[in-house]
Design a protein around this nucleic acid. Structure first.
Lengths: 157, 157
DNA sequence: GAAATATATATCGTGCACGATTTAATCGAC
DNA sequence: GTCGATTAAATCGTGCACGATATATATTTC
């Protein structure tokens, strides 16, 4: 099927054909989809999508209400992605969006009581996923660091 | 900011707040975006998006024209994702979509000459990305296998 | 302090990506 | 051979995700 190990190639035909299965990028791409699927049943109970959950996680971990720009830098998402997503979370009653009095260009995102409360209801999820991953905590941490390093290098380049 | 190592928590407040940066899922999520950005300048010259490039890669590596279902299983994408994507590639003149004579439910995807030819023009890209990753080939292969294992485990669970 | 510049969000258009549903063809039971 | 069940694509609606652009506030220059 993928014929990586069958060099039948003899010049006239195409360059060695790397199938998606051979590529690092595809492993990441498909792993993200699998991850999103794994989260889905848990997040459905909270009424969240995976990207919404990431934003909520950032807010739960923040010491003070961040601006849209801070979230944008932390999550590496454009304002054109975040703005509508944040509006949806606002409509759900999980957060508020308020222009900063000091700098009216910025918008501060603050959790509501309901948004804060959801943290407790989400606390078990990470553990479930970790278990489902079939990898040890050590392996997962190593993998996380390797993947983060790859990401940072790609950004710099 | 993320306060992973500052256990100021004392019961009344939220459970330990895992920030996105601490999570394996986020490292994968952000790495995929970074990867897509890294591919962008190369793929722009071909007029392809990253998912379109994946489909083309699958076709370049295939021995015979696969069906939509085969591509769906290989790339783990729904027909609702593939069908419009394939239609765009067809419009670009890179492939043809033809119902199988043996089984009229299936649609066979075949490269056109132009689509076949693009393989050569894309051959250098993987190497550029590998270089940009700042990781050795060995490291990349190990990472690929680890990430693939994680993905497969998540799917099974 | 007015004009030029820079920064922070928001808006718009396009293309994934999925779940749910639909349509159409094949297969099975009888 | 016909009816019911299964399978393969396609369609529909929603929500990311981005680049390009717009808008509005802040900063800098003069």
């Amino acid at each position: 099927m993928t014929q990586t190990s069958t060099p039948t190639d003899s010049g006239t035909t195409a360059p060695q054909a790397l199938s998606p299965q051979d590529m690092v990028c595809f492993s990441l791409y498909s792993a993200v989809h699998a991850m999103s699927q794994a989260y889905r049943p848990h997040l459905e109970k909270l009424g969240l999508t995976y990207p919404q959950y990431l934003v909520m996680s950032a807010l739960w971990a923040a010491e003070a209400p961040p601006t849209v720009g801070m979230l944008s830098r932390q999550l590496q998402l454009e304002s054109s992605t975040l703005t509508p997503l944040l509006k949806r979370l606002e409509t759900m009653g999980l957060l508020t969006r308020r222009r900063d009095a000091e700098d009216e260009r910025q918008v501060r995102i603050a959790l509501t009581g309901e948004g804060q409360q959801m943290h407790g209801r989400s606390a078990h999820i990470a553990g479930c996923i970790a278990e489902q991953s079939g990898m040890s905590v050590e392996e997962l941490l190593t993998l996380r660091d390797q993947v983060s390093r790859l990401r940072d290098n790609l950004r710099k380049g």
